[in-house]
């Protein structure tokens, strides 16, 4: 296996280490399968670019970049952007749902307190 630079070696083995770490987080139930998808896709892509020099050179030429190492970093940056967008969508949904839950809780508390007051009045009568 021919590597073009030390950067490529570090990138390839770093991606494998990160993929193993992500899978271990899933195994220990610290990360759900849903959130692992982007991480696994990213690490596999970067590892493939790191270990396959012909693929890396082909993609470098295709994108018109000057340095092969930049392609792996560009892939990483694209992943970060995708992850941020994904998390923003998730956060927007969670924020909408937490508002809805708070309103639901307020209405339930109102109903419970009303029933409790009615019960107390009934006992006093």
């Amino acid at each position: 296996m021919d590597f073009l630079s030390r950067t490529q070696v570090v990138t390839a083995f770093g991606a494998v280490a990160l993929a193993l770490f992500v899978l271990d987080l899933v195994r220990r139930r610290r990360l759900s399968e849903e959130y692992s998808l982007l991480w696994v896709a990213c690490t596999v892509t970067i590892a493939a670019l790191g270990f396959s020099t012909p693929l890396l050179l082909w993609l470098t030429r295709l994108l018109g970049m000057t340095g092969a190492a930049s392609v792996a970093f560009a892939a990483g940056l694209a992943f970060v952007m995708a992850m941020l967008l994904f998390l923003s969508v998730k956060m927007s949904r969670l924020s909408r749902e937490s508002l809805l839950l708070a309103r639901e809780l307020a209405l339930l508390r109102f109903e419970l307190e009303k029933d409790h007051r009615l019960g107390s009045d009934g006992e006093g009568a």
């Binding site: 195994r27 399968e33 692992s36 998808l37």
Partner: peptide, 14 residues
Amino acid sequence: PYKNLLASLMAWIQ
């Protein structure tokens, strides 16, 4: 398939 394969593997080794 991704989710179920990964979750199956985890259910097997956990």
